[in-house]
């Protein structure tokens, strides 16, 4: 075993290695059913189940006006201190660059 432990820790060989580097960092998660999360990543596994801290959830809903039948797009936000997220709803994970 020539490679040091450090090298092993920082190597990015597969997609989930990038998520490992985001541990204890704030990330952006896009979920199914028009939901987005921003929060600090505290734990994850190979299914992309996660625990996030200081989470802000954004839900985008489209309603149809009863009179004009126009689409009304609404976003609702809420905050949760700690949230377990089931991986099967995750579409993508990213560092929250432009979304500060």
């Amino acid at each position: 075993m020539a490679s040091s432990n450090n090298e092993e820790e920082s190597a990015v060989k597969e997609p989930l290695d990038l998520i490992r580097l985001s541990l204890d960092e704030r990330i952006y998660v896009k979920l199914r059913s028009d939901r987005e999360l921003r929060g600090k990543l505290h734990a994850y596994d190979q299914h992309l189940n996660m625990i996030l801290g200081d989470v802000e959830e954004t839900i985008t809903t489209v309603e149809i006006d009863d009179e004009t039948y126009e689409e009304i797009v609404r976003t609702t936000k809420r905050n949760v201190q700690y949230l377990f997220v089931r991986g099967d709803g995750v579409i993508l994970v990213s560092p929250p660059l432009r979304t500060a």
Binding site: I64, T68, Y69, E70, E71
Partner: peptide, 9 residues
């Protein structure tokens, strides 16, 4: 009805 009205609009 709501769905079909929306489509017409």
């Amino acid at each position: 009805l709501k769905g079909s009205m929306r489509k017409r609009m």
